[in-house]
Amino acid sequence: MSNPIQDKPNTGFWGSLKDSPSTDEFIKGLWRDNPVFVQVLGMCPTLAVSNTAINALAMGLATAFVLLMSNILVSSLRNFIPKQVRIASYILIIATFVTMTDYVIQAISVDLHKALGAFISLIVVNCLILSRAEAFASKNTVGKSVLDALGMGIGFTFALFCLGAVRELLGNGSLFGIPFFPENFQEWIVMILPAGGFFTLAIWLIIFNATKEKRATT
C-alpha cells in the first residue's frame, strides 16, 4: 500500500479502489493515502520550503495546481499517447504547467517567488505528480482524475501546512507572520533550518502512525 508502483493493476489496493465510489478518489488523498504522511512522496519541497506557514501553503497550492492540470491533460490524452513515449509526454506536460506556475507566482509576488526559489522549478521532479499521472490519470476518466488530483493536492498542501505551521510557530514565534507568543519568546532557530524540517516531519509521522495503529487495534 505504501508502494504505489503499478505492477499489478487488478490486485491489492489498486484493485479494491476500482470498486469504490468516486468520492473515495477524493477522500483517499486527504488521509488514508496522504502523499506526505503515508506515501512519503515529494520530500524535497516538503522539507525545504515548509519553514513558514505561508511558504508551505504557497508551495502546496502550486503543486496542487500542477497536479490538477497535468492529471486533466494526461487523462484526456490517455488514449492518444502511445505507451512507449508516455513518460516523456508526462514530463513534457508537467514541465509546461510548472513553467506556467513559475511565471504566475512571479507575477503575484516577487517576494514569494524569492522565498520559494528553485523549488518551484523542482515541482517538475516531484514524484507525487508523475506517480499520479502514471498510476491514476493514465488509466482513469477525466472526472475521476480531477477528483484524485484534488484529493492528493489538498492532502499534500495540508501536510505541508502541518509542517510549516509547527516550524514557523517554534522557529519564528509567529503564524502567517503574525506574532503568536509574548515578545521575548525564544525562537528555536533550528526549526526553520533544514534540520528542523526533518525533525518536524519525523514527529508528524510518529503521530500519524500512532493514530493509525490505534485505529487498527480497536
Binding site: F80, V85, A95, T96
Partner: peptide, 12 residues
Amino acid sequence: MLQAMVGIGIIC
C-alpha cells in the same frame, strides 16, 4: 509516437 510527441509539444 511522433505525432503524439509533436502534438503535445505544440500544445505545451
